[in-house]
Computed example of a mutant assay.
Amino acid sequence: MAQGPGQHQGYGVPASAPPPNAPLFQDTSGLTQFPPPPSMAAAQHLINNPMVSAAAVQYGSEFAQQGQAYVNKGINRLLAITNLKTYFAVDTSYVLKKLSLLLFPYTHRNWMVGYGESGRTSPKDDINAPDLYIPVMGLVTFVLLNGVVLGTQSRFTPEALGVAGSSLLAWLAAEVLLLWLCLYLLAVTSQLRWLDIISFCGYKYVSMIVSVGLSLVGGSTVYYCALGYTALAITYFMVYSYLQLHYEPNSLPLCYRSRV
């Protein structure tokens, strides 16, 4: 059955033909209009705004401060590395003299640490300067000696060396932190540094090596005798070494001035 032009055909869509000259797509170019770019006068006005200038100056100042802090941090790290190398600047002559001083400190007279143009002199040029070579080598040697003692007792295992080394490092860290905390709480001002405290705390390994080494030869009696002597020697050494780093030469107590 035929349908008229005003009737619907198929799915309710009206059958109407578009005008013959109608465009296929609607022109929408005029619907969205972007604002014109700001003129140079507006940009200059924004720059001359006092609030904008103040914000830019503040931001630049903060950026410069952050950069300066970063550079200072890098310089401090470099100085720390340089100071650490100074503590290992030793030679054979210094090591032999320092070991003799640790075991026989009673005849030593001059305990003052020397200073040059660049600061404290290196250990190889001054026997009184603290170093880290002897403490590090002393710790390693004592761990190996502990393995020898366990071997003579048929109790040696590879894990025992690791346990001994870890225990020594833990006790050393606790000792250093305790001494630093005591100096801080007592408000003691001295020339001691962190590395100085580690160095002085590590010198005791020399006494421990001597005592344990003699015990392998002479037994427990020789061990206790050697332990008592080396304990007194390292105490004497520590007292005078600490005093020369803590006090000025003219402010030392009278009982110590003759030896400094």
Score class of each variant (00 low, 15 high):
F63D: 12
N72A: 12
L78N: 04
A64E: 06
Y115I: 07
S93R: 15
L84R: 01
H108D: 08
A55W: 00
R109V: 15
A54H: 04
S100G: 14
A80L: 06
L84S: 15
L99G: 11
K98N: 05
S53C: 10
G74D: 01
T82Y: 15
Y115R: 07
L102R: 03
S118D: 14
I81W: 03
L96K: 15
Y115W: 10
L84D: 06
E117V: 02
V52I: 12
E62S: 13
G114Y: 10
G114C: 05
T86F: 03
L101V: 03
Y70R: 11
V71W: 01
Q66S: 14
A64Y: 01
R109M: 13
T82H: 10
T86E: 12
L101C: 05
T92L: 14
I81S: 08
Y115P: 03
L103T: 13
T86P: 00
Y87A: 01
S61K: 08
K85V: 04
A69V: 10
H108Q: 11
N76T: 06
T82P: 00
A80F: 05
Y94N: 08
F88V: 03
Y70A: 15
T86L: 02
Y87P: 01
V71R: 14
A64H: 00
K73G: 14
S93C: 06
D91V: 07
L102V: 02
Y106K: 08
Q58L: 10
K97M: 10
G60D: 11
F88A: 09
F104I: 10
R109K: 14
G119C: 03
N83R: 07
N72L: 02
L79N: 07
Q68W: 00
F63T: 09
G67H: 02
F88T: 04
E62I: 15
K85Y: 15
L103P: 02
Q68D: 13
G116Y: 02
Q68E: 09
L101T: 09
V90M: 01
A56C: 07
Q68L: 05
Q68V: 11
A64L: 12
Q66L: 14
T107H: 12
K73C: 11
Q66I: 14
K73V: 00
A80I: 00
Y106C: 06
Y94I: 01
L84V: 01
T82A: 13
Q68Y: 04
S61M: 14
S118I: 05
R77M: 08
L79D: 00
M112F: 09
L96V: 15
H108V: 04
N110I: 10
G119T: 07
M112R: 15
L103A: 15
Y59D: 12
T107E: 08
I81K: 02
Y106T: 13
A89I: 03
Y87W: 04
K97Q: 14
L99W: 08
G74R: 02
V71E: 15
M112A: 10
L99R: 02
G67W: 05
Q58K: 15
L102Q: 06
E117L: 05
G67I: 06
Q65K: 09
N76S: 08
N72K: 01
M112V: 09
N76Y: 00
S93P: 04
G60N: 14
Y115M: 10
Y94T: 04
S118A: 12
L101F: 01
T107F: 15
R109Q: 10
